[in-house]
Simulated assay, not measured.
Amino acid sequence: MTADRVAGRTALVTGAGNGLGRAIAHALSAAGVRVILAGRTAAKLEQVAGELRDAPAGVRTAVCDTAQPGAVDALRRDLSDEDVSILVNNAGIAGPVRELVDVEPDEWDEVFAVNVRGVYLMCRAFLPAMIAHRAGDVINVASVSGKRPLARRTPYTASKMAVLGLTLTLAHEVGEHGVLVNCLSPGPVAGPRMERNFRLEAERTGMTYAEAEQAFVSRAALQRMVTEEEVGAAALAILRMPGMTGADIDLSGGMIGR
């Protein structure tokens, strides 16, 4: 392992076909990491891979639905020739935007399958090799929504709180084996998902889109959303902190404190 703990290693990033997964993959690749892009849609993965083709450390794609045990087991077998020492569990879905009493059980189950069971299955599949090598890093992407109320988003909020609990406990389970497990909790990230949320909120309340956005952003100390590039940089920073495990890194522009 190199002095900066990053260059020369191999990272597996889930949900890597767009958004935060894409940004994290770009940040790691630029730091000299070989990146394996995992996700459910081959075309999106190949698009990101095309952006990283010239990276010296290389890039690879792997189609996988991380919520499905069989798919994750197949992924582990397919990557048996790779020394995955960094696992970034980023895959997730937003779920319904409704009052809890209007959320259907299958909607609730889908959010937890992707956002929580997927993290468990990926850790279960790829931690044994890290434990055997007595080295490795797991970054679970949670959300500030797991630490503060977010009206009409109960399934999502509850799932992200579960990821926080999973991270803290797992860090204590594998710490003696030299494996670090941390959480990265972004606040609202500028992009299509938040644009969707602002449209829905404007429709629900009668506000304009701009008013709905401002009402949300005003909760942050920086009075803005964070960017995908800032999330990628934060993931890289976590990997460069060898004494940190069981931590939850808030990246919300100060939203969690208000």
Rank of each mutant, 00 (worst) to 15 (best):
R124V: 04
D54K: 01
A23I: 09
E82G: 01
I36K: 06
G253N: 02
L150N: 15
P242K: 05
V59T: 14
T245M: 02
N182A: 03
G8V: 04
L222V: 11
T2E: 13
R219K: 13
D109C: 09
A42N: 03
G243S: 11
A132C: 03
G136M: 10
A158L: 10
V189K: 00
P128H: 03
D102R: 04
P155H: 10
E110G: 01
A234L: 08
A221H: 12
A132L: 05
A16R: 00
D248T: 14
G58M: 07
L121K: 02
V88G: 01
E195R: 11
G15Q: 04
A74G: 13
S159P: 04
S252D: 04
T227R: 04
A233P: 02
A38Y: 11
I139W: 02
D102K: 05
H172V: 00
G253L: 07
E230D: 12
R98F: 02
G165Y: 06
A221I: 07
L79V: 13
G243A: 13
V141K: 01
G58F: 10
V101E: 13
T41Y: 07
A171F: 05
H26L: 15
E51Y: 14
I249Q: 03
R240G: 08
M122N: 15
L79C: 11
T208C: 05
R224M: 11
A237P: 00
A62M: 10
A125K: 12
G178M: 04
R224H: 06
S143K: 01
L79A: 07
A171H: 01
R148H: 05
N140K: 04
S159I: 02
L28G: 12
M130Q: 14
S185D: 03
L170N: 05
L87K: 10
T208L: 05
G257V: 14
R124P: 06
V103C: 12
L100Q: 02
T208N: 13
M207N: 15
P188W: 09
T167P: 11
A74R: 14
S85F: 00
G92E: 13
H172A: 12
G136N: 11
V101R: 10
R204V: 11
V217S: 09
T41G: 04
E211F: 04
V6A: 13
T154C: 14
I93S: 11
L236G: 06
V119H: 09
L37P: 05
E230Q: 08
A215Y: 02
L239A: 09
P155E: 13
S252W: 01
V97K: 13
A67P: 12
G206T: 06
R60C: 08
A16D: 10
T14S: 14
A129S: 15
G175F: 03
S145F: 03
M161Y: 00
S85L: 01
A74H: 10
